[in-house]
Design a binder for these strands. Sequence first.
DNA 1: CCGGATCCTAGAAGATACTG
DNA 2: CAGTATCTTCTAGGATCCGG
Lengths: 120, 120
Amino acid sequence: MTVSLSSLRGDGDAFTDGCPTRVVLDHVTSKWGVLVLAALADGTLRWSELRRAVDGISEKMLASTLKTLERDGIVERVAHPVIPPHVDYSLTDRGRDLMEAMSPLLLWVAANADDIVPSG
Amino acid sequence: MTVSLSSLRGDGDAFTDGCPTRVVLDHVTSKWGVLVLAALADGTLRWSELRRAVDGISEKMLASTLKTLERDGIVERVAHPVIPPHVDYSLTDRGRDLMEAMSPLLLWVAANADDIVPSG
DNA sequence: CCGGATCCTAGAAGATACTG
DNA sequence: CAGTATCTTCTAGGATCCGG
């Protein structure tokens, strides 16, 4: 029985509608959130690098995903006042902590995806 | 620097649009998927118990979430041919393996949610 | 009690064009 | 280069009714 997930139950937990846990869980496990975080796990990237790293993301989604993660204190945005603009994104300490917790999941998915989805 | 997530890059990885990794990641990190899986991590539950365990889920979403996870070989469905109907849901071996990989994330979210989302 | 089938809407997400 | 603004499209999700 792995780690005691039952400890999640009881008070303000993920099983209660509208609690902070649900909100953060949604941010962190959102379609693009996971991929952006995984891309930043390797280190600082700038906007255009992120766009290329996360294949298929639109500018709109990249912007809103980054904004949400920044508000949550998971991603840090550093804008350099130069022409042309140069903006760096990286994980905060909290973000790095999060990625340590999330990497087992990402590795599991990478290892099992081909068994689960037959051809495509 | 935690686990090497950069190993995820390269061939058929989560950063490539349309690959199996993306599909499985979406199933597993879906809004309700996470919560259903977490509920089942404690053991077998029947339909009505799941509905109560995952606060706020609609019957439609519970049905479709379970069906997706069942197709992926993560959740097992056992229907007992009695009146009134009795259907049990539980994790498969693969599902338990998945939950071992996911529990650090869930614990992190539970531990950090209140810091991230101020009041609600 | 356990869902399937149907209808419908809000918000997610894509495409494109434009600006400091 | 790094976004914002706008418009459209799409689908996750909710509500309801029904059937085994």
